[in-house]
Design a protein around this nucleic acid. Structure first.
Lengths: 267, 267
DNA sequence: GCAGTGCCGG
DNA sequence: CCGGCACTGC
């Protein structure tokens, strides 16, 4: 018999209530076992729970707040609501962790929305930038203690490699691609030996964008960045067999500025 | 040979830019010669002029302002941009008058958006209510000087007859149906002997609503009011042959809270 | 550019 | 409920 398969998707949806038709279409066409959403932008009681149940995603773990941030993990596979970290200690809803209970039993799935970090890449002038770096440092401390096979997914708001942006030089001073962010993200990666599945399956320097600004997309110049990631513990990473970027969703009606990424595992 | 025919429609559109698809549908399905719009809610340079030209309504007279009020008269028949009255003397864009040049030559068409008047029907507590009454008084003075056959159309924001609202007694203290408004509107009507075409063709006490609040429409209780009117000079009124209320538009997608009214004349 | 918010006006 | 606006965040 063949090994059981597991597929996990991640998508910064930029308001789940406004974008529910697109989410439904994505789930119908791609049928991942699990979908991790970021920026749901609603409180938990306003999450369109029934719509997900109707689509077969009846196992839901989420953390929300009014208007900003918020993450949700919806699943066809039973899951245990495992953890909620507040890596800024400021009450923002940026993480939800679950443990899969069906196929993929015991696997930990961490869904995170790392802070964008404001405009100015300077701790002094822009406190949000410091908060982003501190958030990453706390995730690094947390990573050091991980003992179980874990998949860390979400909108990291950092494009780490030169080839993860449309113009490396032009973006060195733009938050999301500054050397200090890339360095700090590197420390997080090293702390657990996280394997970057996006680059395992689509090796550098291949084009691999997951986000295009609303402001410039219409110009058609492909000014993308790779801000969304899936990182796996080394043992788990060895089992990933496919990784896709659902880039076509960026052309849908009323799209999110991010597109979904999907990884399949042979467990 | 038969007498030339003229059809004139009036519609408070509650943002012409947002509602252009519905306007296009209305014009396509009803093909009035002239359409008078109120609450276009845009400045003149943002009026969707080309869309009207493409629909065959290439003769356009309008007055607009940012965000509020604004009226436009669009026509398949040539017209002369005739007048713009500021009956509040406060710069608000609430009136445009034209003279028809083709069929209906010489006919004056006055398109007006009378102030809503705020919530409290009390001059002292609510200046907007006083402004509404003063607006009507100035229109009355103006009416006294009219010498040419004129059609006065628009959103009057007053339901004059008991049967022009869903509950006369309940609305006696509600702005749009208070005795002082009805009395003041009556003086305006008397000043020129204006004939109320809505009630010429749909005699009281027949139901004749043109507006349903967004707030209560969903309850399905038919809580309508007749706020939109077409008033004609006596000689012109004698030539009206048909008057319809396009009530079905209230059920369209993203409707205005008002519906169009249409009068046909045999000239 | 496009989400969210709050406020005003109807 | 549903327009407009101004503001904020990404």
């Amino acid at each position: 018999m063949s090994a059981p398969t597991l597929s996990v998707a991640s998508w910064n949806i930029n308001s789940v209530r406004l974008r529910m038709p697109q989410v439904a279409r994505f789930l119908t066409e791609n049928a991942p076992d699990v979908l991790c959403l970021q920026e749901i932008k609603c409180m938990e009681h306003l999450f369109p729970r029934q719509a997900f149940i109707d689509l077969g995603y009846e196992h839901i773990a989420l953390t929300g707040q009014k208007g900003y941030h918020g993450v949700a993990t919806v699943s066809r596979i039973p899951l245990r609501d495992y953890a909620r970290h507040d890596w800024q200690d400021n009450g923002e809803a940026r993480h939800v962790g679950v443990e899969l209970l069906g196929p993929g039993e015991g696997l930990i799935l961490e869904n995170v929305y790392i802070p964008a970090g404001g405009d100015e890449p300077d701790r002094e002038k822009n406190p949000k930038f410091g908060q982003k770096l501190d958030f990453l440092a706390r995730m690094t401390r947390w990573s050091e203690g991980i003992e179980r096979p874990t998949l860390l997914v979400g909108d990291f708001n950092i494009a780490p490699l030169d080839c993860d942006v449309y113009d490396h030089k032009a973006l060195l001073k733009v938050v999301s691609h500054t050397p200090i962010e890339v360095e700090t993200l590197g420390q997080l990666q090293a702390a657990h030996g996280w394997v970057d599945l996006g680059r395992k399956h689509i090796p550098a320097p291949e084009r691999n964008y997951t986000w295009w600004s609303y402001r410039t997309y219409w110009q058609g110049k492909d000014r993308g960045r790779r801000l969304d990631h899936m990182w796996a513990s080394p043992d788990l990473a060895a089992k990933s067999v496919k990784h896709t970027i659902a880039e076509h969703t960026r052309e849908w009606e009323k799209p999110s500025d991010h597109v979904p990424i999907i990884t399949e595992f042979a467990l």
